[in-house]
Design a protein around this nucleic acid. Structure first.
Length: 416
DNA sequence: GAAGTTCATACCTCCCCGGC
DNA sequence: GCCGGGGAGGTATGAACTTC
């Protein structure tokens, strides 16, 4: 049902740009539903590995770097602060830094900072190799026998030695850790368990989620395999080189400014001054679709963190979820400068029976935002859930649905 | 204690792209 | 040409709890 009437926010340069956007052979479709302007197209590539290689650490529920890139390029200038209050692995701050913007992010789990910070100040493979040679691998011992479901005994003992070595140089909560230990922990967190020989574990599920010990024992029994011994140091070095294969970033310098604004805590309580942020690109948990505590229990073990903190952002019902979103949006209204923007991404869940973008739209009502519309990026993409038979356009999440907000009170002109 | 409601757990293992 | 590795789930079932 294409409509020819103008967009509600036709004064927005962003909206004009989106309407004029033309992928090869496809113009943006403009629809209006429930008083909301929808802009539908394939706005960025669905191809895998099209962004900078340093993005390629596996984490459950992360959007493509092309999503923040789309908005950063249109709505910010070099030096502006780009922020994500639900950063997860930190795709938004990292992409902002790659584009010469200042990087900021927050996550309820301490894993967020541990995965993002070292990639904002990458260390070279030579430094990683030298540090790994200094680890006293003989000091480790098997302290958690149940983890032998995942690891060969010698591998598990070395993992414990590596944990001790990291903890002495980059303990959780230390905001000025040793950069090399910080980097090695980030890579190790990404190699703990997976479905190929590049991971420390025997064969498991894809690495964006850790199965339970009981599930891993079943996998081992079904395949008739015991976890083989792995060379942890060699795997960390190999993945380090892969992350840096596109280069060390501009000048190899610290990305995102000398002091990236990275925090651990709830999205509704960010220790940043009012008006500091030019653009927020973010995506909250989609109700309880992803069980972050279950997915991350193994990472939290390695990092010495409490996995339970992640549950704070998860809600089974729409009412509780919407209240959480309202608090996060109210905090964004404080942080984003007048004329700045918020791109708030959600996906379809429960077979499309609950339209989360409409809940976000409603939650933003009464806050100092102009609601510009919803950008829908609809395309085929690869899904982890292929593992259990969920393919494109059947069940699960099939589109990026981005609620676009402009902080009122300023000139309101975007940079194009 | 029967009926209704909510909660917790188990189960399933594919497709694609780039590096080598 | 091979293969490493990256990738936003949903349903069935029964236990546990609530209400009258």
């Amino acid at each position: 049902m294409r409509q020819t009437q103008p967009a509600l926010a036709a004064d927005s340069a962003l909206v004009r740009d989106i309407l004029a956007f033309a992928a090869p052979g496809s113009a943006t479709l403009h629809e209006r539903a429930e008083g909301i302007d929808y802009f539908v197209n394939a706005f960025w590539t669905a191809g895998q590995r099209q962004a900078h290689a340093i993005h390629e650490i596996s984490y459950r529920a992360c959007f493509k770097p092309q999503l923040p890139e789309f908005f950063i390029s249109r709505l910010t200038a070099p030096g502006d602060l780009v922020f994500d209050p639900f950063m997860g692995r930190g795709t938004t701050p990292l992409q902002a830094a790659l584009m010469g913007r200042r990087a900021g992010g927050n996550d309820i789990s301490g894993l967020g900072v541990m995965m993002c910070r070292p990639r904002l100040r990458p260390v070279g493979p030579d430094a990683v190799e030298a540090a790994l040679r200094r680890v006293d691998w003989s000091r480790g011992a098997v302290r958690r026998p149940e983890l032998l479901a995942f690891y060969h005994p010698a591998t598990l003992a070395r993992l414990e030695a590596l944990r001790d070595w990291i903890d002495a140089r980059a303990p959780p909560g230390d905001d000025r850790p040793d950069p090399v230990a910080d980097w090695i922990r980030m890579v190790a967190l990404n190699r703990l368990a997976g479905h190929s020989p590049g991971f420390f574990s025997g064969r498991s599920m894809p690495p964006n989620q850790a199965v339970s010990v009981a599930s891993q024992l079943r996998i081992n029994a079904r395949l008739g395999l015991a976890p083989p011994e792995r060379d942890i140091a060699a795997l960390i070095l190999r993945k380090s080189r892969a992350l840096l294969r596109d280069g060390m970033m501009p000048g190899g310098a610290v990305l995102g400014g000398a002091h990236p604004c990275l925090f651990t805590g709830p999205a509704w309580d960010i220790p940043l001054e009012a008006g500091a942020v030019a653009l927020a690109v973010t995506s909250p948990p989609f109700l309880d679709v992803v069980d972050y505590a279950a997915d991350n229990w193994l990472r939290c073990w390695f990092a010495g963190l409490d996995a339970g903190a992640a549950a704070l952002g998860q809600h089974r019902g729409a009412a509780g979820w919407m209240a959480m979103i309202r608090r996060a949006l109210a905090e964004l209204a404080r942080l984003v400068r007048p004329g700045g923007h918020v791109a708030f991404e959600v996906g379809e869940v429960r077979g499309g029976r609950i339209l989360l973008e409409r809940q976000v739209w409603q939650a933003a009502a009464g806050l100092p935002f102009e609601r510009l519309g919803v950008l829908v990026n609809r395309q085929l993409f690869t899904k982890t859930s292929n593992c259990w038979g969920v393919s494109n356009f059947t069940r699960g999440t099939n589109s990026n649905r981005v609620v676009l907000l402009r902080r009122s009170g300023g000139g309101g002109q975007s940079i194009t």
